[in-house]
Simulated assay, not measured.
Amino acid sequence: MVQSLNTKIDLTTKGTTFVGTTEYGNIMIGDKAFEFYHQRDRRKYIQIPWQEIDFVSASVLFGGKWIPRYQIHTKQNGTFTFSSKDPKTVLRAIRVYIDSQKMVKSLGFFDVIKRAFIRKKTNK
Rank of each mutant, 00 (worst) to 15 (best):
S106Q: 07
W50Q: 05
K75E: 05
Y97R: 14
A58V: 11
P87G: 06
F80V: 02
I72N: 00
S100F: 09
K114H: 01
S57G: 08
K65N: 11
P49M: 12
F80M: 06
V19Q: 09
F62E: 04
T12C: 09
K65W: 09
T12Y: 02
F80N: 08
K121S: 06
G108L: 01
P87H: 02
F36L: 11
Y97C: 03
F55Q: 12
K114C: 00
Q76I: 04
T81F: 00
A116E: 04
D41A: 14
I72F: 07
V104S: 03
F109L: 10
Y70H: 09
E23R: 10
S83G: 15
D10Q: 14
Y70R: 01
T22Y: 07
G108H: 02
L61V: 06
M28V: 14
I113C: 08
S106C: 00
W50H: 05
I67D: 12
I46V: 14
F18N: 11
F82I: 13
Q71K: 13
V60Q: 11
S57W: 02
T79R: 03
K14F: 08
W66K: 04
Y45Q: 09
F34G: 03
I118C: 05
R43V: 03
I67Y: 12
I53C: 02
S84D: 08
N6H: 10
K75D: 08
F82Q: 07
K85F: 09
K88W: 01
Q39G: 01
R95D: 15
R119C: 05
D99P: 04
F55L: 12
P49L: 09
G108K: 01
F110W: 13
Q51S: 11
R69T: 00
D41P: 00
I9H: 00
D111C: 05
K124A: 15
R95Y: 13
Y24A: 06
V90Q: 04
L11A: 14
Q101M: 05
Q51I: 07
T122W: 10
R92T: 00
L5W: 01
V90D: 02
K121W: 14
N26L: 11
V104L: 08
K75F: 03
F62L: 13
G63H: 09
T13L: 04
K14V: 13
K32R: 11
I48P: 10
A93C: 11
E23I: 00
Y70L: 05
I46M: 07
M28A: 07
R42Y: 04
M1W: 11
V19W: 02
G108Y: 01
K75T: 13
A58I: 08
T12G: 00
N123F: 06
T22C: 10
L91D: 00
I118M: 14
K14E: 13
A93G: 04
F117V: 13
Y97H: 15
I29R: 00
F62W: 13
G108V: 01
F34H: 06
T74W: 12
T16Q: 02
Q71V: 07
S57V: 04
R43P: 00
F80R: 03
H38S: 15
V112L: 15
H38V: 14
T17A: 04
H73P: 12
L91K: 01
I98Q: 12
R119D: 14
L91Y: 00
E23Y: 06
Y37S: 07
V56G: 01
L107H: 06
F80D: 02
R95I: 10
K114F: 07
